[in-house]
Design a protein around this nucleic acid. Structure first.
Length: 500
RNA sequence: GUCCCCUUCGUCUAGAGGCCUAGGACACCUGGUUUUCAUCCAGGCAACAGGGGUUCGAAACCCCUAGGGGACGCCA
């Protein structure tokens, strides 16, 4: 049998996600266990949302966790380039081939038509998907449309009947009717491929033998399998892992949980502890040992020990594990070293110094003033939020709106944050000073502190959101009913500001 | 709405028809150690979603029901 090759294929559209690390870990273990290779490929075909910054962050985060790849955009390999944006020609060529061989077709349908179509399908209680409108176009009409430069996409053809059997390493064969499968867009109107096409082409060209990915992909597996068939390629073995969950069992999301790897780094978790913890999500060592290194995991890895129930990503056990690493594994010297590495990161200090410099008279003033940058959640209670004009409900509302507002920011820059907060204060009709009061408490634990906007910029999205959420909980939390009302008010607010 | 997947203590899990009166761990509670606290140690609480089969025997295999989740984008 040929060499085992697995891959992780993150899309650089935000902060590095623990889910990415989770899937990377299992791909890495599987590959290593079979003396195979583990590949990192960047799926940046979404031109609008992808960024180089995010790509760099992902590479850094995975390295920090010790999840090292053998081939990737930064270290090359025999099957490059490993960044999909650099492989456009390859996809274009493959799409041409599919069209020529009659497996794919041009589609000139407008967005409006598609939206309308979906609406109608919903009413008719039919599966949602493309209706094959452009399939009826004659060659002449297609040529004419192309000549006129009408924007178009390429869609794949799907058998009209029968069903597709998806084999999976972890479960029984999954059978999905072709009628349920959409005529997926393979190439967007910007000429770039969609995930489905790029993924299949790359996995084949990069000789990936085992695709270990999240369960969310099961339903699109038929499309992928069909593409392999169209191309006449052998499909890799598929394996769909359970999804990491929020406490309410929904798919792990940043709205309900901190999901960025950077957050856990900043919260003072050791990479080996986080890695260990991810390893016990849906998997266990044969002897049920709970503390194990990446090497241990690779050595004893058995993909069949993956259990299918979606594990709740609950940090209580991570806390306990991390504590054990800290006090049982690290020697005093190592502890010292690791702690100073964590605490004295030049980047972080350089960001903080300008904020505190003008407020100190001695170095001893620094710790009390800046400790909140290095802490987890601030110690605050209901009394902390007492204010002469702002009620606790006001505070709660302000914090909730800010939490929602900042997650919509496309870039995390001080000025953007400031602008956003000012706008929000304005549209809520609060004085800036009053408006920022609960924010100070939530972020710094005190209203006597460095600029809260700069502090937010330094702390980052996930840490900020975690503190806002923490503060909201202290203020009594938000009931379902309240949440509904707040959401209503919020969307009205956003609507209003969009119009002005 | 349509389809797909999943279901063991609150949480992570063990369990491959008899070792199951269901084991371990976190959390929680109690006690001990400790000048305090933490650590550490000892103990306790706590689950096979429900119903029907198959079988001498079911947590495990099959069916139904319920619950949860996911997918249904020119996002990945």
């Amino acid at each position: 049998m040929s060499e085992v090759r697995t891959r992780i294929a993150p899309s650089p559209t935000g902060d590095p996600h623990v889910g990415t690390a989770y899937i990377a870990l299992f791909n890495l273990c599987f590959a290593r266990q079979h003396n195979g290779k583990f590949i990192l490929r960047i799926e940046d075909t979404d031109q609008v949302r992808s960024s180089k910054k995010s790509e760099d962050d992902i590479l850094k985060a995975l390295s920090w966790l010790g999840l090292i790849w053998d081939e990737g955009p930064d270290k090359g390999g025999d099957f490059g380039p490993y960044r999909q944006s650099e492989r456009s020609d390859i996809y274009a060529e493959h799409v041409r081939r599919l069209v020529k061989e009659g497996h794919a077709f041009h589609c000139f349908c407008s967005e409006e038509r598609l939206t309308e179509l979906r609406k109608q399908q919903m009413i008719d209680k039919k599966p949602l998907g493309y209706d094959g409108h452009c399939l009826l176009l004659s060659e002449g009409e297609i040529a004419e449309n192309l000549n006129k430069n009408i924007p178009h996409v390429i869609r794949m053809k799907i058998p009209s009947e029968g069903c597709c059997i998806v084999k999976d390493m972890l479960r029984d064969d999954v059978s999905i009717e072709w009628q349920q499968v959409d005529m997926q867009v393979l190439m967007k109107s910007d000429g770039l491929p969609t995930y489905h096409l790029a993924n299949v082409v790359d996995d084949h060209l990069m000789q990936i033998t085992h695709v270990i990915r999240g369960e969310e992909w099961i339903n699109s597996a038929p499309k992928h399998l069909l593409l392999y068939q169209y191309f006449g390629w052998e499909a890799p073995v598929l394996c769909h892992m359970p999804l990491l969950r929020n406490a309410d069992k929904s798919k792990l999301s940043k709205r309900k949980n901190p999901t960025s790897i950077g957050y856990y780094q900043r919260m003072g978790y050791l990479p080996e502890a986080l890695c260990n913890y991810l390893g016990m999500m849906g998997w266990s060592m044969p002897d049920e040992q709970e503390m194990f290194s990446l090497e241990d995991m690779i050595k004893h890895f058995d993909i069949n020990r993956v259990s299918l129930g979606g594990p709740v990503f609950d940090t209580e056990k991570l806390d306990w594990l991390n504590g054990r690493y800290l006090r049982e594994i690290l020697s005093d010297d190592e502890f010292t070293q690791r702690f100073s590495q964590w605490a004295f990161q030049p980047e972080m200090l350089q960001a903080i110094v300008p904020l505190i410099k003008q407020r100190v008279e001695r170095f001893t003033d620094i710790a009390p003033l800046a400790s909140f940058f290095f802490s987890g959640m601030p110690t605050i209670d209901l009394q902390s939020f007492e204010h002469k004009t702002l009620s606790q409900d006001d505070s709660k509302r302000v914090l909730q709106f800010i939490a929602w507002r900042i997650e919509e920011l496309e870039a995390w820059h001080r000025d953007r944050i400031e602008q956003t907060l000012m706008q929000l204060a304005d549209s809520l009709g609060f004085k800036i000073r009053d408006f920022l009061f609960p924010v100070f408490i939530a972020i710094a634990g005190s209203s006597v502190s460095t600029s809260v906007i700069d502090s937010i910029a330094v702390l980052g999205l996930d840490m900020t959101r975690a503190r806002l959420r923490h503060a909201i909980e202290i203020l009594g939390g938000v009931s379902k009913k309240q949440l509904k009302n707040l959401e209503k008010e919020y969307s009205a607010l956003v609507h209003q500001s969009e119009q002005s």
